[in-house]
Design a protein around this nucleic acid. Structure first.
Lengths: 353, 353
DNA sequence: AGGCAATTGTCAACCGGTTGCCATAAATTG
DNA sequence: CAATTTATGGCAACCGGTTGACAATTGCCT
């Protein structure tokens, strides 16, 4: 029917000539139709609308497809339908290990359901993030935003277009996956109180971080409950260096225990305090947040409030899948538990001298 | 229900965008054509074939495109051309920090050139890897394999279809990005020799790892040169736990310094030796490989041979871009330098007692 | 056997951008 | 000024899978 174009161009057409498909392109539903002796549209239905064709024809077509080693052309499918079998995942910083478990959780779950994952990084910038998100929207079926930096409104706008799931932040009207910090924090605070600490400092994360605010709130409440004094200190950046930089302020605060916004801060802080001659945990207890890769490499290994980040990634992906296939608009918030991981960096305060 | 489209009106030109509702469907080149008063094909040319249309028309079209906030439909473009502006990246293990920097390097470089990155994981399995690669081939313009586990032949077969770049391994006939271990290793060995060590152990990685073999070879050569005795020990897995498990063998070997296949092994080994009461580096020196995230969290911080992994990722992406646009068959091997990062885990041996 | 509904397959029109071919307008040249 | 080359825009046929509309086939009853 359709005569294949045979451009016997003698002149080299392009440099990528080597990889050009020379006549032998991939099998299409038309090829299958020919082999099975049916119409292409029947093939299409057999392959994507189970039940629409008779069992006999179905088998015929499936056999032909298997024989030809057929696989759908995702682009040809995406063009009329818009379905791409692809999810987008945007993280603030690819080198931040916090996101690696999230990425892995999302990737694993997506692959399991025959979706692929597109990755982008916002470099901690709301503008870059929005740009990346906009660009992705065109080519994905749904989007996961891990610790997004952009406005709630921007997120809602995106979510009107296609399913969006947010990790590590609550946005009204958008499905979210959020670690419930209270359990882990209260465990941590109780543990500190039990070890005789009276004044605890919180080293905060970026001002615009929703999660940092939640953690500070949770800690203040837990301290009140345990009758501890809580002070809040600012950090410059939520990184190892940021932790180093905040060390002086921590010492000056007079607190004997510190809870930090994340593990990186805790590690940097511990390094700097130790370099200044302080002994952890004898003179000061340090508790991190997230339990990232490497949190147990330190000496002493870091006590930390674990967020099940992998679960967040796979939970968000599952939410997205549910939103797309079948079931309506559950949305709402998926809460995952946090817990204290007690290691060596926290403990009883030794009396000075 | 949409009304049946049976336009016997002969004047109908192009797909009439009847219900082009804002928000629902994006502007197309047909919309631009209408605004600019030209033919859709002219719009297509103006947007993708610079110079093919007059400057005047070009401007007209660009203005219209900007006004409508147009962006190409990648699927519609991919269908006839096969070009997708997408790269695939397959790593063995997403949680292995070795790949963090590779992913980031690739992502950054790709985004910079308006490509997006699709990520897949092989879970250290050659079969899963090949499956993932096959699936990706259909939807990407090129593929990056980081530390692939599959056969050389499988890789070459893939490479016949579309551009493929391999990281951390040499495959004949396929462009590769490989850290040149010799410089870093010889620096490490010389440093150990200078500190009085006479016998050095190498803790190997997975048997099928090409890179592990290179590192062992490099070390043996360097030791010969420095007149040191070199012994090779096997590990179970190239992870922290694998490092712990090999600790006993290391002690029994009588070596006073160890070079490990990667940092994870080194960290696990160091933890286990320290737990057994040995002092690092006074009683044994430990040198890792790669300088992954967290290598400096340990006490003492890990001395390691740094592989510029981010460079590998971005180098591979650049190679892919070169292969696609313009220049034909550079292929060959891109070597990147390694260097010793001297930290606290290696040093002079203290005389016993 | 005739009538009617339920199944199953076919036709053709999309989705949106690309590109070979051709007609025409513009520029160059003899 | 005519002839030829060249630059430019238009036409239409793709890419491959999807889907509404409809025809053909089958099954079931009376």
């Amino acid at each position: 029917m359709t005569e294949p174009k045979k451009p016997d161009a003698p002149a080299a057409t392009g440099p990528a000539k080597k990889h050009a498909r020379e006549g032998k392109s991939n099998p299409t539903i038309y090829d299958i139709a020919k082999v099975a002796g049916v119409n292409p549209s029947t093939v299409s239905r057999a392959l994507s609308k189970p039940g629409r064709v008779s069992a006999k024809t179905q088998k015929l077509i499936e056999d032909a497809a298997a024989e030809l080693n057929y696989q759908v052309n995702q682009f040809a499918r995406a063009l009329p339908t818009g379905r791409t079998s692809t999810f987008g995942l945007i993280v603030a910083d690819i080198t931040n290990p916090t996101f690696f478990d999230i990425i892995r959780g999302a990737e694993t779950t997506a692959t399991l359901r025959d979706y692929t994952l597109m990755l982008a990084e916002s470099e901690e910038s709301a503008v870059t993030e929005l740009t990346a998100a906009r660009r992705m929207m065109a080519t994905v079926d749904g989007l996961i935003l891990a610790s997004p930096r952009m406005d709630d409104d921007d997120i809602r706008t995106l979510a009107r277009d296609k399913p969006v799931v947010v990790i590590n932040r609550e946005v009204d009207g958008v499905p979210c996956v959020v670690p419930d910090v209270n359990k882990g924090i209260s465990e941590a605070v109780r543990s500190l109180a039990a070890n005789g600490h009276r004044k605890v400092a919180f080293v905060a994360g970026p001002p615009q971080s929703w999660m940092s605010a939640r953690r500070w709130e949770g800690m203040r409440a837990a301290c009140e409950w345990s009758r501890l004094e809580a002070v809040r200190l600012d950090s410059t950046k939520p990184t190892v260096n940021g932790g180093r930089e905040v060390a002086r302020v921590v010492r000056d605060s007079g607190a004997t225990a510190v809870l930090t916004y994340n593990d990186l801060l805790a590690i940097g802080l511990m390094q700097e305090l130790q370099a200044a001659g302080m002994v952890v945990p004898d003179q000061i207890s340090i508790v991190g947040f997230d339990d990232i890769f490497g949190a147990d490499f330190t000496t002493p290994p870091l006590t930390t409030v674990r967020s099940p980040l992998g679960e967040c990634g796979s939970g968000a992906t599952t939410l997205l899948l549910d939103l797309l296939h079948g079931m309506g608009e559950p949305a709402g918030i998926l809460r995952v538990e946090t817990e204290l991981v007690l290691r060596g960096s926290s403990g009883r305060l030794l009396p000075p001298g």
